[in-house]
Each structure stands twice: as structure tokens, then as C-alpha cells.
């Protein structure tokens, strides 16, 4: 069972306390297991009038073939990637 709070705490801990000493230029470093931060593969959407987001909150916006989507950056902090289809275009929204 993934623990969202633990995952983020771990990420922030490493973020704050990792040192330059173990850094090798261009090396791939493992910070967390695969999918510890769960990407969204089956995104669910609501119309704007059902949204509870603060009006000033930042989003990523996309529009293809007349279809538009908004992804809250605060939500993306915990997921990083949304696999979506917008206006027939298969997209990966990344943050």
C-alpha cells in the first residue's frame, strides 16, 4: 500500500538533505521506487461549475480540436504525469 504522505516526506527529505558529495554528473540516481509517485492513467474530469479549485490557483491548460482541459499544479505535485486524450490527441501532461 502506497503511503502518499510518506512518499512526499521522503522526496522532500532527500530534496533538502542530499549532498553534493555523492553526485556524479549525468548519472541516473534512484530516489524512489517505480510508481512511488503515482502517475494518473485514468484521469477523471468535472465541468468548471463543479470545480472546487481556488480561482487564483495555478493550472496547466491545454486545448486541442476545441476540447480544453485544466490540470491543477497542486494536484500534479503528487502525480507528476497525467496520461490523457484531448481532442483525439494522446498527451502526457508532465510537471
Amino acid at each position: 500500500m502506497k503511503n502518499y504522505t510518506l512518499t512526499l516526506s521522503l522526496l522532500l527529505f532527500v530534496t533538502f538533505y542530499a549532498t553534493a558529495a555523492d553526485y556524479t554528473d549525468d548519472a541516473i540516481r534512484t530516489l524512489l521506487p517505480f510508481d512511488a509517485i503515482p502517475a494518473i492513467t485514468d484521469p477523471q474530469f468535472v465541468p468548471a461549475n463543479a470545480a472546487k479549485l481556488d480561482p487564483d490557483a495555478p493550472i496547466i491548460g491545454v486545448t486541442f480540436s476545441g476540447e480544453s482541459r485544466a490540470y491543477s499544479l497542486y494536484l500534479l505535485n503528487g502525480h507528476e504525469i497525467v496520461n490523457d486524450v484531448v481532442g483525439g490527441q494522446k498527451i502526457a501532461t508532465t510537471w
Binding site: F45, K52, L53, P58, G61, T63, E67, R69, G78
Partner: peptide, 30 residues
Amino acid sequence: QIAWKTWLLNYPSTLILSVPTRDGMRESLN
């Protein structure tokens, strides 16, 4: 990046990603 209200004003038919539920907990939206 854009403020939600400005996006909505320009794309009134937009849909917005809803809050996933995980382990019975709702994620913080704001």
C-alpha cells in the same frame, strides 16, 4: 501555467481534472 479563473474565462467549456481519492483520503486541492 495560468490562474484557473483566467483559463476558465477564455475557455468556458473546459473540463478540470478532479481530485483522485486514494486510501480513502482526498488530496489537498488548494
